[in-house]
């Protein structure tokens, strides 16, 4: 079985401009993965399947992963010019100050493919693809035309994560019902408030029961107004 570096080189030789990156896995399992550019991913997938040496004909597992926006706090050294009075004379002086800056690294949805070879009995080769963000750029190419086993699994990821697979023959919800809104596997998913709270003497329960009743009353008031 080739190493990830060799597979990367083979892909780049076969699909010029594929732009494959290695994502190292620091854990003891050492299952490193290859990050694909969505534009060329289907070509790369076809190569991996049809290459006689790799022959990755068995797409075992397709997983969605949600990575939230990350707020990164970092200390930066900044040089700026300040006017100071030195020896009774005002003059500009360069000064280096440490500043704390915050920036937001945008999150993304990731799809992970685990490939094995039935013919050569080796694997896994792990592929990853990432969406542009978590809201409006959530399209990725579908692998269903390359490996049929992606059909239901990509539907599941569409259902639970909201990744839209371009070229999927039948992209519908699969586990949740039709007409369901939102994607329950996302990290920031909030469960709908449709529970009945027993009025026990726990502060937390009482508070939620009150909030729930207030919501219900508001909804009933709206209904009456219409």
């Amino acid at each position: 079985m080739k190493t990830v570096e060799e597979i990367k080189a083979a892909i780049e030789a076969a699909v010029p401009g594929a732009g494959v990156e290695i994502v190292p896995n620091p854990g003891p399992s050492a299952q490193h993965s290859l990050l694909l550019k969505p534009e060329r991913a289907v070509e790369v997938a076809k190569f991996l399947r049809d290459d006689p040496e790799l022959a990755l004909d068995h797409l075992s597992n397709v997983t969605g992963v949600d990575w939230l926006d990350k707020e990164i706090t970092e200390k930066v050294k900044v040089t700026r010019t300040v006017t100071k009075t030195v020896d009774g004379v005002e003059q500009p002086i360069e000064e280096t100050v440490e500043e704390t800056r915050k920036r937001v690294e945008p999150g993304y949805l990731e799809v992970v493919y685990h490939l094995f070879s039935v013919a050569k009995k080796h694997g896994p080769v792990v592929l990853r693809m990432r969406t542009g963000n978590r809201s409006d750029q959530v399209e990725l190419p579908s692998m269903t035309r390359v490996w049929r086993s992606a059909e239901f699994q990509e539907r599941e990821i569409f259902d639970l994560y909201g990744v839209v697979f371009k070229g999927h023959p039948d992209l519908r919800r699969i586990l949740m019902w039709e007409g369901f809104k939102d994607h329950p596997m996302r990290k920031d998913y909030v469960e709908p408030d449709d529970f009945e709270y027993e009025p026990t003497a726990h502060d937390e329960v009482l508070r939620r029961a009150q909030a729930h009743r207030a919501l219900e009353a508001a909804a009933a008031g709206k209904g009456a107004a219409q």
Partner: peptide
């Protein structure tokens, strides 16, 4: 466990049963 990921699978009576953990 240390940060990382792993996919493990066995031959369950119904087929390949795998778990993928990050």
């Amino acid at each position: 466990p240390k940060a990382g990921e792993a996919y493990g699978r066995i031959e369950a009576p119904k087929g390949e049963l795998g778990f993928y953990l990050i």
